[in-house]
Design a protein around this nucleic acid. Structure first.
Lengths: 338, 338
DNA sequence: CTGAAAGCGCTTACAG
DNA sequence: CTGAAAGCGCTTACAG
């Protein structure tokens, strides 16, 4: 026999067998009633329903999953659940998945590229599919992993890979912002770089290169910055010393740091210096002055990832690419060149 | 027979039977090898491992869950995944649960009190336990639900209930802030109320009542406000008309709105008016001036909820209460009474 | 050290 | 309309 030692269902719930016995029917019949199949006589169905009520019977989803071969659950793996970007994407995925009757299992790799592959595999084994958000692992590792975890959707990974991808076109984002600055008369524009080697920073550089080619007469400067408010704050003096009339932070946090330093130094934004951000985080609207930035609807990104997965679950599509283009949000931190 | 129509495992993975057959051993032996049981001869174990490698075998977590009677998954139900408060709590739960080898299934009730009970039940059926965060449902509904979903932990629900609860003591939080203001010489203090009927607003009122009793000489005013930045912004003129020297927003957003309006009106904070917040959201540090507020470590709240659940899973404890007391964070938006 | 067998709690094709 | 039976993919007590 295989009776377990103590382990039973924690809340000691009734099983389908309990209901069948109490109602004097077979388990098949109970199953049919629970699933609303019409081929059950009304009297029997009523009796079963009453027993279900009395016993507080609730079918085990685990058993259903095993029997049906699907869990109605999708995994979402992010590098850091504390990061608002991933929180918004998660929210978008969850909303869309819930509408389709799916639940979301989350996992956080704590920014560890090394832990990612086994984590994704583990999550996939408990779910029907995975959405991998901004994976930090190398491309070759990702290529080795993908066949083991399909159906899978990748968010924010720019290389071509054998999976559906949802990406934000940051390159065209910076380019848009630069064109806006140029239209306002800025001729010397500075970009504060983000983490070297990051996917986002690579995209920014592609955008800047594009602008440089389009506008040979514009001075496009770059300087190491970072991705935090402090990084922006500390870079301020160096920024001013370049003589640029407009500065583009790697993200909104950096630009908010610049704004704080400008206020302390008595530099008037945007009269003396235009400051542009990237991301449109919720607080960008409330800084002094409000931040002009590039906006991406991250919840829509999460929703698109879910839609892509839905298509894959129905095997409508094999691998494709869905691109989100950031939109310029004009507020008060950017103005005409002095 | 019960062969399914098309339905097989989506990624067509190998099963334990495939491995057993290929390695020429029983499924029991494969299981032992996979679980690192020492009672397998080294040669056989090595052969099994090689086949596992060749076939890319990965045990089904669903089957394991059914067999073992546990999923190693915990459910977290929140009213709104887009709310930073719940995002931080979720992050804390996830970190602590991951350390213990558990995964987190999230669900969002979209602020619908009505949808909560069935949602919690559904989540519970797929997991070993649930953490229900700031449930919106009525107390009697919660009482009816709890026995069906144990083990369960409740976050931010102030009534005594048959479950372990983790609560933030907002009442003592407002009281602390009021005492701080009184020490600074403020004699007329205004509280901008939040959503009427909310758990948090009720707690605020308890705190204010306590202060009124302690300090009969202090004028403690109240006024309808709200929970958003706009609410704070719009209440500003009314706030000024009360002649209060210090105002306490329902939360940081409200207070940030007040700060914005003060700047526009040329009212100097804190010289002419002290503005205090509640929550210590990440941006409270970066407003102008930085916001004095009551801080709660929400990730620690999430972590505590997990710990409480761990105790319940080991049935160490039946029901208890873990209280977090907000801490005063002094920044520059509060000063001596004029 | 190893395997045959029973069991976890469901679903459904098949045969009345 | 209903039930007996097989199966989903694992684990483990029991008996060698």
């Amino acid at each position: 026999m295989a009776r377990r030692p103590g382990r039973t269902r924690p809340s000691a719930g009734a099983t389908i067998s309990d209901v069948a016995e109490a109602a004097g029917v077979s388990r098949a019949t109970v199953s049919r009633v629970m699933n609303g199949r019409p081929t059950v006589s009304p009297e029997i169905a009523a009796r079963v329903r009453q027993v279900v009520e009395e016993l507080g019977y609730n079918p085990s989803r685990v058993a259903q999953s095993l029997s049906l071969g699907k869990t109605l659950t999708v995994g979402v793996i992010v590098p850091d659940l504390g990061n608002p970007t991933f929180q918004q994407i998660l929210h978008g995925v969850n909303q869309a998945a819930a509408t389709a009757g799916y639940r979301v299992l989350v996992a956080d790799s704590a920014e560890s590229a090394q832990d990612e592959p086994p984590l994704v595999e583990d999550v996939r084994r408990r779910t029907d599919a995975v959405i991998v958000c901004s994976p930090r692992m190398r491309t070759d590792e990702l290529e080795a992993l993908l066949p083991r975890v399909q159906p899978a959707v990748l968010i924010n990974r720019d290389e071509p890979l054998p999976a559906t991808r949802v990406v934000v076109d940051s390159a065209s984002g910076v380019a848009s912002m630069c064109r806006h600055l140029i239209r306002l008369g800025h001729r010397r524009i500075l970009h504060l770089d983000g983490p070297i080697g990051s996917n986002a920073q690579a995209a920014r550089m592609r955008g800047l290169t594009l602008i440089a080619e389009e506008n040979p007469d514009i001075e496009l400067l770059r300087m190491p910055g970072g991705s935090s408010m402090d990084a922006g704050y500390e870079a301020f003096d160096a920024v001013m010393s370049t003589g640029a009339t407009a500065v583009l932070g790697f993200n909104d946090l950096v630009s908010l740091g610049l704004l704080g330093a400008a206020r302390e130094r008595g530099v008037v934004v945007p009269d003396e210096l235009s400051v542009a951000g990237f991301d449109d985080i919720p607080f960008a609207r409330f800084s002094t002055p409000p931040l002009t930035t590039m906006s991406v609807d991250l919840e829509a990104v999460g929703e698109a990832a879910w839609r892509a997965l839905e298509d894959r679950l129905r095997s409508v599509v094999d691998a494709d690419l869905r691109v989100f283009t950031p939109a310029l949000v004009q507020r008060a931190s950017v103005g005409l060149a002095p």
